[in-house]
Simulated assay, not measured.
Amino acid sequence: MLKEFREFAMRGNVVDMAVGIIIGAAFGAVVKSLVSDLLMPPVGMLLGNVDFAELFVVLSEGNVAGPYATLAAAQEAGAVTLNYGLFINTVVSFVIVALAVFVLIRNLNRMKRAEEPAAPTTKDCPHCCTSIPLAATRCPHCTSAL
Results as ranks from 00 to 15, higher is better:
3 K>F: 15
3 K>M: 12
3 K>P: 09
6 R>I: 15
6 R>T: 12
9 A>T: 08
10 M>I: 12
12 G>C: 05
14 V>S: 03
17 M>I: 13
19 V>K: 10
25 A>D: 11
28 G>P: 06
29 A>H: 11
29 A>P: 07
31 V>Y: 05
33 S>P: 10
34 L>Y: 04
35 V>F: 03
40 M>Y: 01
44 G>E: 07
47 L>I: 14
48 G>L: 11
52 F>E: 03
53 A>S: 09
55 L>F: 09
56 F>W: 04
57 V>G: 08
59 L>F: 13
62 G>E: 00
63 N>P: 10
63 N>A: 15
66 G>C: 00
67 P>N: 04
68 Y>I: 02
68 Y>D: 03
69 A>P: 07
70 T>K: 01
71 L>D: 05
72 A>C: 11
73 A>F: 02
76 E>L: 07
81 T>R: 02
83 N>P: 12
85 G>T: 13
87 F>G: 15
90 T>L: 09
90 T>G: 08
91 V>F: 04
92 V>R: 01
96 I>L: 08
96 I>A: 02
97 V>S: 09
102 F>Y: 08
102 F>L: 08
103 V>A: 14
105 I>N: 05
108 L>M: 10
110 R>W: 09
112 K>T: 10
112 K>G: 11
113 R>M: 05
118 A>L: 10
119 A>H: 07
120 P>S: 01
121 T>G: 00
121 T>C: 04
124 D>E: 12
128 C>P: 11
129 C>P: 13
130 T>N: 09
132 I>V: 10
134 L>D: 13
135 A>N: 10
136 A>D: 13
137 T>V: 12
139 C>T: 05
139 C>A: 00
140 P>Q: 03
141 H>I: 14
145 A>L: 12
146 L>I: 15
